[in-house]
Design a protein around this nucleic acid. Structure first.
Lengths: 155, 155
DNA sequence: CCTGAAACTTTGGGTCA
DNA sequence: TGACCCAAAGTTTCAGG
């Protein structure tokens, strides 16, 4: 693992909140010239510490009003079946996140759709036909009260 | 709600995957000149369709190896108690997401920490002392098999 | 959509400890 | 040697026409 120094950490904390900040503005914020910031950013990208830059959209303004957490238990847990399940989930754009979890269920999915009808159609067309799924439990989101993608790092 | 046309949707789909793409590169990708792309991006930002731009980090490279989904039920559900709970959760940097959910539990939290010891300390210091929490159920993440922040939009 | 001045990015060379 | 600063060359931005 790359060792991160205090300046790296400051850069990462800023970029996690302002992903399109200019090198110049970031440099001024940290009291350095553009060169070291530029080189550090490139290094952090190259080393994979920064995985990617993205725009986060307001889901309400693009007609994606429903989020559901779906817990799933599988019948067959052999490796190839797990891999097959994951591969399948990766193809569905409605499934934004997939976690293998310890406990009663095997997987937890985060599914986002336009509304409840679209959600039901999606489940019927894509999960209900999967013969390896034993159990499905849907937890509907009433409101999202906190959301951040940032890991606040301290030096 | 702002009405989005096919070009807006293409712009949003690209920016959700390449948040730092230059206006010029984006314009070339969509076969338009920089001016209309520039104006549309500014409009989408101003209207709040684009909420923000962020850098996503590789959690394994910054020593955040444990993710836990925590389901919580509260004792008192009056509005002011719910608001107090949310306000409290918003102060914890380890709590990245908070969802009010329908069903057995009231809230689901996504908590990210360095490791299991740090997690336990966090729970003991911050949740166990909350006298309004009735029940806590932790679901530990073994692996994250899909993760995207993008809503793939179709025209 | 085109244009160009202003702003930003990127690189090479040089300084300091 | 490593981390930084400066300045010039190369790109991009963004307002006017």
């Amino acid at each position: 693992m790359t060792q991160l120094d205090a300046t790296d950490i400051k850069i990462l904390n800023v970029l996690q909140e302002e992903g399109r900040i200019t090198n110049k503005a970031l440099s001024e914020k940290l009291g350095l010239s553009t060169t070291p910031i530029f080189e550090r950013m490139k290094r952090l990208e190259k080393d994979g510490v920064i995985a990617k830059y993205v725009a986060l959209l307001n889901h309400k303004k693009i007609d994606r009003k429903l989020t559901v957490f779906v817990s799933i238990s599988l019948k067959n847990h052999t490796r190839s079946y797990l891999e097959k399940f994951i591969e399948e989930m990766n193809q569905f754009k409605e499934v934004q996140e997939v976690y293998h979890i310890a406990g009663d269920f095997d997987y937890m999915l985060k599914i986002v759709t336009r509304d409840i009808e679209t959600y039901q159609k999606f489940i019927l067309a894509n999960l209900s036909v999967n013969s390896n799924i034993a159990h499905v439990k849907s937890q509907f989101v009433l409101s999202r009260d906190k959301y951040t993608t940032a890991y606040k790092l301290d030096s």
